[in-house]
């Protein structure tokens, strides 16, 4: 089956005072209809920039898509006209952001903001669009939707606002939803509600979701497949279960081991957390070797010579590392 979205060898560069920052290096990923792809990594690894590239929202200048292709249903998005992109955003690809307060307009009623998305993409009347937006609010689990549609964003809690954002994003039944850290600003009990909602809506509508996060727990909750990013590269990708239980890349292993995971049966023993020594390299000066090599315990001479390519180790699981055998043992 052809993938819904196919990103190939994407290169994105930013001009900075310190030189050219290579924000995305040869990023390739596929998203199929009805699946949830998790993109995980630390700040600056390029996960949000991947999302912005897909939406055609890379700020330019200073940003520049220097190479690669992005295809949605076979249509090339990088060469699409602004008008065409404008039609697509909100209709075929939607996005929800981290901070639900700043992404809603404070001076319009939430019902109006949902109706706006519908009116922009469909030929319908204002009153019908308003009815649809009430229905959307009901569907994302806001009680007394007909009344709450008349509320302004400041009258709602963070969780409610994120529900409104989801309602706006899904109002026109997009094929792809990009969720950029959708629950990072929310409390855990509310986060659990939003996860339930996303999962339920996804099952109903079959919308594909790209979920961007730094939280492996969130990945485990929602994603079918995962791509792990580091310094602008995808360094490991595979089924969530495989990545979480059998991570192969030293960075993925470190990322899972360094988080204190909540255990149901904590023991008296408390070993120190695993640390990944050092810091992320500056994107303006990545060198030609593996970007993770300076921080890697398994570094060999090969690693400083060239960036390893993403190679398959099983049908679904790909890793970019020269020393998989030594890492595994």
């Amino acid at each position: 089956m052809a993938p819904l979205l196919s990103v190939k060898n994407l290169l994105v560069e930013f001009k900075t005072r310190a030189g050219i920052a290579k924000v995305l290096n040869n990023v390739s990923l596929d998203v199929h209809s009805g699946e949830i792809l998790g993109v995980v990594g630390e700040s600056g690894c390029g996960k949000s920039m991947t999302a912005l590239s897909i939406m055609g929202l890379v700020p330019s200048p200073p940003g520049n898509v220097a190479g690669g292709t992005i295809e949605l249903n076979g249509e090339d998005l990088l060469s699409a006209s602004n008008k065409r992109l404008h039609q697509m955003r909100g209709k075929e690809i939607s996005m929800i952001f981290q901070e639900p307060m700043t992404s809603l307009n404070p001076v319009f009623k939430v019902g109006h903001q949902i109706a706006e998305a519908i009116l922009l993409h469909e030929k319908t009347t204002k009153s019908l669009a308003w009815e649809r937006s009430v229905k959307m609010l009901d569907r994302v689990g806001i009680p007394e939707a007909a009344i709450r549609a008349n509320s302004y964003p400041h009258e709602m809690s963070g969780g409610m606002r994120q529900r409104v954002m989801i309602a706006i994003a899904l109002a026109c039944n997009p094929k792809l939803l990009i969720a950029d850290e959708p629950t990072t600003a929310l409390d855990v009990t509310v986060q659990a509600q939003i996860f339930d909602l996303l999962r339920e809506l996804q099952r109903e509508t079959g919308t594909a979701i790209i979920m961007i996060t730094h939280d492996m727990g969130a990945i485990s909750e929602l994603a079918d497949r995962v791509a792990v990013m580091y310094a602008g590269h995808i360094i490991e990708t595979g089924d969530t279960k495989d990545i979480l239980s059998k991570p192969q890349h030293p960075y993925t292993r470190g990322l899972i081991a360094c988080v204190p995971h909540l255990e149901e049966n904590p023991s008296e023993e408390r070993p120190y957390l695993a640390e990944i020594p050092g810091v992320v390299p500056p994107l303006t000066d990545l060198g030609k070797g593996c970007t993770f090599a300076p921080r890697c315990d398994f570094r060999t001479d090969d690693c400083t010579g060239s960036q390893p390519s993403l190679s398959k180790i099983s049908d679904q699981h790909s890793v970019s590392c020269f020393n998989l055998n030594t890492v595994a043992s």
């Binding site: 969780g159 659990a192 969130a218 485990s220 899972i256 909540l262």
Partner: peptide
């Protein structure tokens, strides 16, 4: 109990249906 059960866990992939979630704020 609700707070603990709301935390997404790395080892619980696929078992999220057993948990009960708090409603409201």
């Amino acid at each position: 109990q609700a707070l603990l059960s709301a935390v997404p866990r790395v080892d619980s992939h696929g078992s999220h249906t057993e948990r009960q979630h708090l409603q409201g704020d």
